[in-house]
Amino acid sequence: MATVAEEHVGVQRTPHPSPPRRHSVLHQRRQRRGAALFALFAFPNLALIAVFAYWPVLENLYLSLTNWDFISPEPIFIGLSNYAQLFTSSTFLDVMVTTVTWVVVVVGASLVLGIALASLFSMKLPGTAAVTGIVFAPHVIAGAAIGAVWLFIFDPNYGLARTLFEAVGLTSPSWTTDASWALPALLIVSIWKGVGFVAIVYLAGMQGLPSEVLEAARLDGANRWRLFTRIVLPLLSPTTFFLVITQTIAAFQAFDIIAIMTGGGPASATTTLSWFIYEQAFQRSNVGYSAAAGTVMFVILMVITMLQFRYVERKVHY
């Protein structure tokens, strides 16, 4: 929409660049040709972005104020009822608790383990390059495939989980079919898939640190731990911030691992906001209700992104 408007304004406004007066007619023609070519080159992409990224946000907002089942001819406007229902529903409260647990645990654990791995990698021990690649590899594998492999690992009868539990004299729980173990199982898988990415980003950050500062601190007799907590960590705060934001946004939208491993169950033990949005729309045809939940997700992620804008500009550094 915006792009079409821009185009009209553009055509009227084009002919006023001042520079070479002599060639102004030529220049004008060139500008206009350039603008036409710009439209030809850029508008297909911009139109797709408008239709499939911007329009959905607006339309989703509208749908959240309606009641619809995909089939009946028109969505019926019902005001804020969907939101009222969401915010008074104990199911939705559970969903939000699960979601927040998911995000906090996955992001927190990925960052801690990721920076630990990055520190290990930055020692440049032999074999580091290969291990870095191996640790990053799950990031390029489909979540559905990873979920399938871990489903087998978590099999209490024939999976690796049984081997590990029996090794310490315990019996493996029925991970994915036990309501109190299903969420931990998914969290482990999600962390396993994402931690390599975090490690690589941290590693790149560490390699960008000013070596003079580190050297000076070392000469001053700072031990490893102090060096890490007092110097490396504060210097890496922009990286940490970037990771917290991007990982949080990704964690909120986690889907394929849930879909293949538990389908939001058992009962609703692993129903996160992303699964809830899908379930309400595509399994129960509660379009308006799903849209309202979608708006909740949109607002939460927008707030987080805005935080990024403000915080990164003002502070973050050391």
Binding site: A53, N60, Q253, V287, A291, M297, L301
Partner: peptide, 14 residues
């Protein structure tokens, strides 16, 4: 900045 998951429903309708 638009989270992909939020666009699913409307894109499906589109």
């Amino acid at each position: 900045m638009v989270p992909g998951h939020v666009t699913l429903l409307v894109n499906y309708i589109t």
